[in-house]
Amino acid sequence: MSKRTSNISGWPDEGVIFPVTSIDVRVSGEPHPYFHSHTAEIATNWEREVAANPALFDGRMLLMRSLEKRDGAISGECHIIPFSAFLLWRKTRPAGAALHLFGLPVIVSSDGAVIAIRMGQHTANPGRVYCAAGSLDPDDIRGGYCDIDGNMAREVLEETGLSLSDASNISGFHGLRGQDVVTLFRAYHFAETAAELIALINAHIAADPDPEIDAALAIRTANPGQHPYPPFMPPVLEWVFSTTQ
């Protein structure tokens, strides 16, 4: 097991995609130990981040403390933290301190393209290209547990204007991990072509007074060098194109 993932147990190697049968992540009401022990460093780093990008907002999100995988079942515990704490953790990633888990809805057009978005320059991920998604936050808590499907539907609607409920076919969940990040994804197949979906998203961007994204893109290859992807995107693209052709 990697030293960086000492709070993960029972997982495949990094970058290996595996089926997920259930997700059961409890939200603790206690402070995350990482936040509790790094308060001063978080505040100092946040001052630097905001000085470089005044558009950043220190909202609340969910950061995992531990995750376990047994067969296809994922369970664990997370805590509500300020976004500023996540930014410092993401920059330093101290071994065993925390894990980031998020849902990735992969929209696939009727002509076989994955529809991705490019993040705006004012965001925390400027210029990055990936499927519309976002971190879990308190709005995604249902009965004390993380609602991954609800999070994905909310993020896609906010960023693109598309409703995941309009998908004609939805795959089961799959997952992968890397660098203390766990990505849970599923494919949403739409009846519209890539051109039609991009036109809908572009209209949403134009009507949004403060859009998070500045473009929608149709991806038709798993080439990792095609766009400035985060690490999770190339293996997800390879899986999608290999299973839908």
Results as ranks from 00 to 15, higher is better:
E238N: 12
E238F: 12
A187P: 02
V240S: 01
L237E: 05
A206V: 10
V236D: 10
E192T: 03
P231W: 11
M233S: 13
A215C: 08
V240H: 06
E212D: 12
P235H: 14
P228W: 04
L217D: 03
N223P: 06
H204R: 00
H227T: 06
H227G: 01
L217F: 04
E238R: 15
F232M: 15
A194N: 08
V240F: 13
P209F: 00
E196Q: 07
R220G: 01
H189L: 12
E196G: 08
L237K: 10
T193E: 08
Y229S: 03
H227C: 12
F190G: 03
P231H: 09
T193F: 04
G225W: 06
P228F: 00
A215K: 04
H227S: 11
W239K: 15
A218K: 01
H204P: 03
G225K: 07
E196V: 11
H189W: 13
L217N: 06
Y188A: 02
A207G: 08
A199M: 08
A215G: 03
P224C: 04
A187K: 11
N223F: 06
A218I: 09
I205H: 06
H189Y: 09
A191F: 03
A187L: 11
G225V: 10
D210H: 14
P234T: 02
A191H: 09
P224L: 00
D208Y: 11
L237T: 00
D214A: 05
D208H: 13
E192Y: 00
I198Q: 11
H189T: 13
T221N: 04
P224I: 05
T221A: 10
Y229L: 01
E238W: 05
P230I: 10
P209R: 01
I201E: 05
P230T: 09
P228D: 00
P209N: 02
D208W: 11
E238S: 15
I205A: 02
A218N: 08
A203T: 15
A195F: 07
L237R: 04
E238M: 08
A203C: 03
A187C: 15
F241S: 06
A207S: 07
V236K: 12
I201N: 03
W239N: 12
L200V: 12
I201D: 08
A206F: 12
I201Y: 00
R186H: 01
P209M: 00
L200S: 15
H189A: 11
M233A: 15
A222P: 09
A218F: 03
I213D: 03
A191P: 05
A194Y: 13
A222F: 06
D210T: 06
V240Y: 01
A207Y: 07
V240L: 11
H204K: 04
L197P: 03
F232N: 14
P230V: 10
T221E: 14
E212S: 05
Q226K: 10
N202A: 08
M233N: 13
V240A: 09
A195E: 12
